[in-house]
Design a binder for these strands. Structure first.
Length: 261
DNA sequence: AGGTAGCAATGTGGATAACT
DNA sequence: AGTTATCCACATTGCTACCT
């Protein structure tokens, strides 16, 4: 799906939902990863973990996910955090984590939603392992991973899905598929995010990020209609041609409206 | 030389199986 | 039932090739 190389970076941390919230509380714009680590250690937000582990979390998880694109993900999540339900934030975390770790995004798109659509009740680590091994065969990694790395990364894929609410939580190697649907906040965010990235309306409708939520072009159009009811956009659909009227002038404006809604 | 990315190895604790 | 062995998931630390 994507062409990026798969890495083992998920090894450094899975969903990290509470850790991410804690770091967002401490983070301010223009803060370096080193500064963030220092602040986090000083604030005692992570009393149970070592400095080395904190480094892992900040530089290998938090930064690649939320400090990219001028740290806009972090800035936006921080804006939304106070008023938006955790489930919505977790969907955005899935988006950012999948962008940082293409192997997760592809797993969700190709395996999770295929199983979901196929009426399966669960996804096992063995399913994930098969996905990883096929990816290696297809040359998606820089080199062939060892057996243990394959097994672990496979487990991290399902574990991360569990952290973000797509699969059942707990220490299981076979997890139940949970009902999962993009929330209005997440879909509004993604819509505007793609828009301000400069994508045209038609390209937005078919963007692969929607597939993280199991949405194809028709689903996206229907979602836009829902967003129009909330006043976020205006949708004009005539046959195959869809035109979007964008009501907010910036991501900050959107986040402001969402957090006050 | 020092830093970093990518991968591997180790530590820990819980869950389950196997045994007595 | 209670104890021990084994497995598994996850956190943490270590290693190394590569780049600057």
């Amino acid at each position: 799906m994507t062409s990026a190389v798969y890495t083992t970076q998920l090894q450094a941390g899975l969903g990290l939902v509470t850790e991410t919230k804690a770091l967002l509380d401490l983070w301010v714009p223009d803060m370096s990863t080193g500064q963030l680590q220092d602040v986090a250690r000083g604030a005692g937000s992570f009393p149970m973990i070592t400095a080395r582990r904190l480094r892992n979390i900040v530089t290998e998880c938090f930064a690649p996910r939320y400090l990219v694109s001028g740290a806009s993900p972090a800035a936006h999540l921080k804006m939304l955090m106070a008023s938006v339900p955790l489930a919505d934030l977790m969907q955005l975390m899935l988006l950012f984590t999948s962008r940082a770790n293409p192997i997760l995004g592809d797993f969700v798109r190709e395996i999770y939603w295929a199983r979901y659509a196929g009426g399966y009740q669960q996804i096992s680590n063995e399913d994930a392992r098969a996905f990883v091994e096929r990816a290696i065969d297809d040359g998606r990694t820089s080199k062939r991973w060892s057996e243990t790395t394959v097994r672990r990364v496979a487990a991290y894929l399902t574990g991360c899905c569990a952290d973000y609410g797509l699969l059942e939580k707990g220490l299981k190697s076979n997890r139940r598929i949970l009902p999962y649907r993009a929330t209005p906040t997440a879909s509004a965010y993604l819509a505007y995010d793609l828009h301000f990235k400069g994508l045209g309306d038609n390209a937005i409708l078919t963007h692969q990020d929607w597939q993280l939520f199991g949405m194809g072009r028709e689903d996206v159009i229907n979602e836009f209609k829902r967003l129009s009811l909330k006043g976020h956009v205006i949708v004009q659909a005539a046959g195959d041609v869809v035109r979007i009227g964008w009501k907010h002038q910036s991501m900050e404006a959107l986040c402001d409206v969402i957090s006050k809604g």
